[in-house]
């Protein structure tokens, strides 16, 4: 049998190069494992060491408001960003003319390139004062809705402002992803719909949206992943308090994990540092789960998309 004979000569260059590449690839796995391990190791003293003033009632009652704030701010951001992202993606893929659409796509991509600290600066010095009168109006006229109730913040540094900033920040990546998926809609399906005399909206409803639904879901999940981890914009804009509150217009808002770390870490020492790292581990776990679900949705779609 010829195929059972010993393997033919392997060249030194090939062996070295292939192994270099292999170790680079595997280093990704090692790095992530190291990240998890080190964060874990540095979190342990927060539980075993002497209690910290900030967390006198235990770690979980310390971290809970931050978990709530993180999720709440991200959900608000996502609720605003998702319909807008779908609209933008549709506009670029199916409404604007091709040349114009390219320029528009570039403009939206620019939003993604702006550093988050600049968003923070803009959010607090421009957006918050701009929104403040509207918050008053919302509170006066729609105050019977619980989330708009309470004493309105005078500065505009509220949960809703943070949600809007987060929405602007995750919009570009979501819009770009959804746009890509919409553009992959099989031409034949679209033309079939148009040939039946459908209007543009009917064509989108018949061909584009059903095809793009998994893409929209995964884009939303990825946007959520981003929003959960966003730090500086939240740290700068939000006026925080250690509470769990659904009210979005007041000056007592639940802070997010990331923003709390950024605000406390530079001044923290001793066990407090370990406590903050432990909250970081919680954030890491939350974003990991969200991103994994997003990837899982995408990969499932890739397997079944026999259409292209």
């Amino acid at each position: 049998m010829t195929d059972t004979k010993p393997k033919a000569v392997r060249r030194l260059g090939d062996v070295v190069f292939a192994n270099l590449a292999f170790f680079a690839g595997v280093s990704i796995l090692a790095t992530l494992a190291t990240v998890a391990a080190f964060l874990f190791a540095q979190s342990v003293p927060a539980f075993t060491g002497p209690p910290i003033d900030a967390a006198s009632e235990g770690f979980f009652s310390y971290v809970l408001p931050f978990v709530f704030g993180t999720v709440y701010a991200s959900v608000i951001g996502l609720a605003i960003a998702t319909p807008l992202a779908i609209g933008i993606a549709l506009y670029i893929s199916h409404f604007a003319n091709r040349k114009f659409a390219q320029v528009l796509g570039y403009a939206v991509d620019l939003l993604a390139a702006i550093p988050s600290v600049v968003y923070g600066l803009w959010g607090i010095l421009v957006l918050a004062p701009f929104l403040s009168p509207t918050f008053n109006w919302l509170n006066e006229n729609l105050g019977w809705i619980p989330i708009f109730a309470g004493q309105v913040s005078a500065t505009g540094r509220t949960m809703l402002t943070v949600g809007i900033v987060l929405a602007i920040m995750v919009l570009p990546i979501m819009a770009a992803l959804i746009r890509e998926i919409f553009l992959q809609t099989p031409r034949l399906h679209e033309e079939a719909a148009l040939a039946l005399g459908a209007t543009r909206w009917e064509m989108i409803k018949m061909a584009v949206l059903p095809f793009g639904r998994p893409g929209i879901i995964s884009a939303a999940m990825l946007g959520l992943g981003r929003a959960l981890g966003e730090t500086m914009a939240v740290a700068m804009v939000l006026s925080p308090a250690a509470v769990v509150s659904f009210a979005v217009l007041t000056s007592t808002n639940s802070n997010t994990i990331a923003a709390n770390i950024a605000l406390q870490f530079p001044e923290a020492g001793g066990n407090y540092t370990n406590l903050l790292i432990a909250t970081g581990l919680v954030l890491f776990a939350i974003t990991m789960v969200v991103n994994m679900i997003a990837r899982w949705v995408i990969s499932r779609r890739a397997e079944f998309s026999g259409a292209n």
Binding site: M1, T2, D3, K5, P6, A8, V9, R11
Partner: peptide
């Protein structure tokens, strides 16, 4: 599987690169 000879030399021989 099988044999391929080039001027009598086995192209798929064990030590052929």
């Amino acid at each position: 599987e099988g044999q391929l000879l080039m001027d009598g030399e086995d192209v798929y021989g064990p030590d052929v690169d």
